[in-house]
């Protein structure tokens, strides 16, 4: 058995072994996917069958009724718009601030550099809620409670250090010779950064933006504290509100989940390989 699991690589396994592996993987896939399939199923259930103990994947009399209710009778579109405003602005703030800072961390040595990087990493460890209280008090005092601005400030707390760390990793992979060539041609350091590094790292900046976007887009705890007015709710708050009345809104909640989760999942699948390499890049190089 052990040999089956851990044995050689690059050679064909016997037929029985391959069948066993496929079987195990198929089972794992079912466990991974089934809960989401259930969400789709429930989103298609007509109102009368919402509360049923049926395990059928395609419900009898499947209907899009829940989607109609969600879009026209609920604040769904408002929630999406609010989330969009907050997360896109957060991304712009984070990328603008971190693009040049990460460059400094990647290309220069200066006193406090190592400590600075370590500090940025440590901020990602802070218990959630730790900075929320002081930031909440600050936001209330600045009369930014129940505004997009307060939310964007709160989301930038995590997004800026994360973006700096990620982008530094990418800049490190761009050979220094490229800017040196530009410097030899008489360009200044700033010019070299803007004309050589920025164009080369557009994909990296895009990916960095994408991750900041995704974490701000699905953020729940801060939104819950910063936004009390229901017409400012971002979608995670709206979804939680939908579920307050479980029995009547389960189908509508599921429809909402499908509409938000499918694009998010596609975006994630598309970008996850960069996240993995970004996480390791930052760590390996000093």
């Amino acid at each position: 058995m052990m040999k089956k699991l851990f044995g050689k690589k690059g050679r064909e396994d016997s037929l029985a072994k391959r069948l066993l592996i496929h079987l195990v993987l198929i089972m794992a896939c079912v466990i991974a996917v089934y809960p989401f399939l259930r969400v789709i199923t429930i989103s298609l259930r007509p109102g009368a069958q919402l509360l049923s103990t049926s395990l059928a994947l395609i419900p009898a009399n499947a209907t899009l009724e829940n989607y109609r209710t969600l879009i026209f009778d609920k604040d769904f579109t408002i929630w999406l718009w609010n989330s969009l405003v907050v997360s896109i602005t957060t991304v712009i703030v984070a990328v603008l601030l971190s693009a040049s800072a990460a460059y400094a961390f990647s290309r220069w040595t200066f006193p406090g550099k190592k400590q600075g990087l370590l500090f940025l990493l440590t901020t990602q460890m802070l218990p959630p809620g730790m900075l929320l209280l002081p930031i909440y008090v600050m936001v209330v005092r600045m009369q930014l409670f129940n505004t997009y601005t307060g939310m964007i400030l709160a989301h930038s707390v995590g997004a800026v250090p994360f973006s700096i760390w990620l982008l530094k990793g990418y800049y490190d992979t761009i050979p220094k010779e490229l800017e040196e060539a530009a410097l030899v041609d008489g360009a200044g350091a700033i010019e070299a950064f803007l004309k050589v590094i920025i164009p080369l790292s557009t994909p990296a900046l895009g990916v960095c933006g994408l991750f900041s976007f995704m974490s701000s887009w699905s953020e729940f705890m801060m939104a819950r504290v910063m936004l009390q007015k229901s017409n400012l709710f971002t979608w995670p708050l709206g979804f939680q509100k939908l579920l307050d009345q479980f029995t009547s809104q389960w189908g509508v909640f599921s429809a909402a989940s499908v509409l938000v989760a499918v694009p998010a999942m596609l975006l994630f699948m598309y970008s996850s390989k960069w996240l993995v390499s970004g996480l390791t890049l930052g760590g390996v190089k000093e």
Partner: peptide, 26 residues
């Protein structure tokens, strides 16, 4: 791809959906 789905779903949605699925009756 299929095995990454739990990671790809926004956590809020996954948690709320699971909450429903732990409902005693339904």
């Amino acid at each position: 791809t299929l095995l990454t789905i739990p990671w790809a779903i926004p956590q809020v949605i996954a948690a709320l959906a699971w909450k429903n699925e732990f409902h005693y009756q339904y």
